[in-house]
């Protein structure tokens, strides 16, 4: 991933900063510049909104054939998480045994390494989820 692209996404990847449409109130993550529902009526009304970082597993899958950055962790859990604020996001769930992951499980945000550009490149950090404690 190009350095500027990841750098631009730091607020959402580190702190779950999404957007709220000032016209219809819909939350989006990652943040949008224009609300897809309201179109130009939302322009100039989009606000940044930080999510609380708590949610529930809506569905999940176990990844056995992983992309390179995640090879060390396979098999691992990838889940759709419904956040307290109502929107859904896809993320890895860590610190959970494969037999223990369940639909409906409460999860909380964790800060982890997402990948790195080889041995000498930039390291990317961001959110993952773990069982709420």
């Amino acid at each position: 991933m190009a350095i500027p692209r990841f750098w631009r996404e730091i607020p959402s990847r580190y702190n779950l900063v999404g957007s709220k449409c000032g016209n219809c109130g819909t939350l989006d993550f990652p943040p949008r510049l224009v609300c897809p529902r309201c179109g130009r009526r939302s322009m100039g009304k989009m606000e940044r909104r930080k999510l609380a970082g708590r949610g529930t597993v809506v569905s999940y899958t176990i990844i056995h054939d992983a992309p390179k950055d995640f090879d060390m962790m396979k098999p691992y859990v990838l889940a759709i998480v419904e956040m307290e604020e109502g929107l859904r996001m896809t993320s890895q769930v860590i610190d959970v045994e494969l037999g223990d992951i369940k639909i409906g499980m409460p999860v909380e945000v964790a800060f982890r390494k997402l990948g790195e550009e080889g041995e000498a490149g930039v390291i990317h950090y961001g959110y993952k989820f773990r069982p709420a404690r």
Binding site: M72, M73, F111, R112
Partner: peptide, 16 residues
Amino acid sequence: PGPDEDVITMSVEAAR
């Protein structure tokens, strides 16, 4: 540390 943990991730967890 897990494979996705390092000094920075643990520092953030402790600070939070």
